[in-house]
Design a protein around this nucleic acid. Structure first.
Length: 482
RNA sequence: GCCGCUAUCGUCUAACGGUUAGGACACGGGGUUCUCAAUCCUGUAAUAGGAGUUCGAUUCUCCUUAGCGGUACCA
């Protein structure tokens, strides 16, 4: 088989969203699985909506996800090869060729005219289709109109008999009657080429072997096949992957909540977790595994195992998978990941990173098994860093409920750590023994000490907390309630 | 409206035409435990409806229904 070459071709009209990321991921996995190339191309022919900011965000998102491209912006001596607005002469040359071969023609119908006809057809409940009238113009008539300065678009003639068959790797054969298609516009009046045209020209010129994209492009495909044929290009393989859906089962979009990849980064999701989850939306492995690294996905991925129906985005499952990946981090990795969140929420300062790194690391690790998203670290561990907090409601209840014993509990606890320090095994052993002697039950003294040290009723093991705090911090907090 | 796609637990999904229809998330119960979490065990829960082909349909065919996508001089 020839070298596999696939591409992801976003238009820089907004941030990279979850659906686009999933399409990019499937392309990436397919390329890497087959030792092929993954190409990034910027489809910026919509010059009204395309922006550099969007483009930068898309590239940043892809890098963050680990979807690095082999060819594309920043990967060759000449980036302009990968921006469609810088490839205009190429499209114009192909369009001219089609016109000279009479496979395409200039159409002088105005947008207003056509819109009117479309509205009328709609009102009469008919399907609107351009009748191809300008294609019937003689050369002289067309020249006359052009010389008169009439603006025109260029359309490719579409055979009106027979059918077009798409051989789709995930959907099998999809058949469309040619009579439902009208002549395809490939150049606007301002000479900018249209998506259906550039995509074909670029995919051919870039040697794309497999076109993997969302199902929303399936109905464009017959048009593109006609353009391939008119141009005399070899056809790539198509694979239309199912859409990602929102809670109402329509295509995932902004109104369903966060869809920007970078927002997931900000909210504390790990790129490997997002990749893992996204891979499972529409694709499934040949066994029951659910947790995968990128490397494992690359080795297992196959288009043949891509599902046909749309998949609803389930944040709960993403959170679960994120939690699994967080638990897989070592102490330093996790600390490095959490620090930005602690900083942002003001729980720690830049100075703390230098002066108290080990303390931060201990605090973070104690929350590791509980973290679903990194952003939760601040709320969970703020009492490790802030001394001026109040007991929360549940903690107050514990405090009040144990009014009779609490004084004694704190007295014994402070006596012990004063005598033997805060080593967790030693403190636990000694505390349990002394409390038994004093006739105080574990549930009571544990809970009391916990609320005094942390101000809350939940958290890591009590002796982990006291050991991490150290003697001074423990005593300071006990004093506050004595 | 027209064209196309799709249809298995609430969700993501598995199942050469023969399975007690499997797994995961979520949810419920229990074990462990100083709390929460993690972890282990465990429970509830699905083949849209109707014909046909077949000894036998989740699986193949057709119809219906529903949902989605497209229907731009957007991509």
């Amino acid at each position: 088989m020839n070298m596999v070459r696939v591409r992801f071709a976003p238009s820089p009209t907004g941030y990279l969203h979850i659906g686009g990321a999933r399409t990019a991921l499937f392309n990436y996995l397919f390329a890497k699985h087959n030792d092929g190339k993954f190409i990034l191309r910027i489809e910026d022919t919509d010059k009204d909506r395309s922006t550099r900011e969007s483009e930068a965000e898309i590239l940043e998102s892809m890098k963050w996800l680990g979807l690095d491209w082999d060819e594309g912006p920043g990967k060759s001596a000449d980036d302009s090869l990968y921006y469609q607005t810088r490839r205009l002469p190429i499209y114009h040359a192909h369009a001219d060729k089609l016109i000279s071969e009479n496979k395409a023609y200039k159409c002088f119908c105005t947008k207003e005219e056509l819109d009117g006809e479309r509205k009328k057809a709609e009102a009469e409940k008919r399907a609107f289709k351009y009748d191809g009238r300008c294609g019937l113009l003689t050369k002289e008539e067309a020249k006359q109109k052009e010389d008169a300065g009439m603006p025109f678009v260029v359309r490719v003639r579409v055979e009106q008999t027979g059918e077009t068959v798409i051989n789709d790797i995930v959907r099998g054969e999809v058949r469309v009657q040619n009579s439902t298609l009208d002549d395809i516009i490939i150049l606007r009046t301002d000479k900018m080429p249209i998506y259906n045209f550039v995509v074909v020209v670029d995919d051919m010129e870039m040697g794309i072997t497999h076109v993997i994209r969302g199902e929303d492009h399936l109905s464009n495909t017959p048009k593109q096949i006609h353009i391939y044929k008119a141009l005399g290009f070899p056809m790539p393989q198509f694979a239309h992957i199912p859409l990602i859906l929102g809670a109402d089962k329509s295509k995932l979009s902004k109104r369903h909540g966060e869809t920007a990849v970078l927002r997931y980064k900000e909210n504390g999701y790990l790129p490997e977790a997002l990749v893992n989850y996204l891979a499972l939306l529409g694709w499934s492995p040949d066994n029951d595994d659910t947790i995968f690294s990128m490397e494992q996905l690359v080795s297992k991925f196959a288009l043949e195992r891509v599902h046909k129906s749309g998949a609803m985005f389930d944040n709960k499952k993403l959170m679960f998978i994120n939690g699994v990946h967080i638990r897989g981090k070592n102490a330093d990795e996790l600390t490095k990941l959490c620090v930005p969140y602690l900083l942002k929420s003001g729980v720690i300062t830049e100075g703390d990173i230098k002066n108290r790194y080990d303390f931060i690391k201990h605090a973070v690790v104690l929350q590791q098994e509980k973290l679903q998203v990194l952003a939760e670290i601040s709320d969970l561990s703020s009492y490790f860093f802030k001394d001026d907090y109040d007991m929360n409601e549940d903690a107050k209840k514990v405090w009040e409920k144990n009014e009779a014993e609490r004084g004694k509990v704190l007295e014994i606890f402070s006596k012990i750590i004063t005598e033997i320090g805060v080593d967790k095994a030693k403190v636990e052993e000694r505390l349990k023994a002394d409390m038994e002697t004093a006739g105080i039950k574990p549930k009571v003294f544990m809970h009391v000490i916990r609320v005094v040290l942390s101000g809350t009723t939940m958290g890591p093991g009590l002796f982990d907390i006291s050991e991490t705090f150290g003697y001074d911090k423990c005593m300071a907090r006990i004093k506050k309630y004595s």
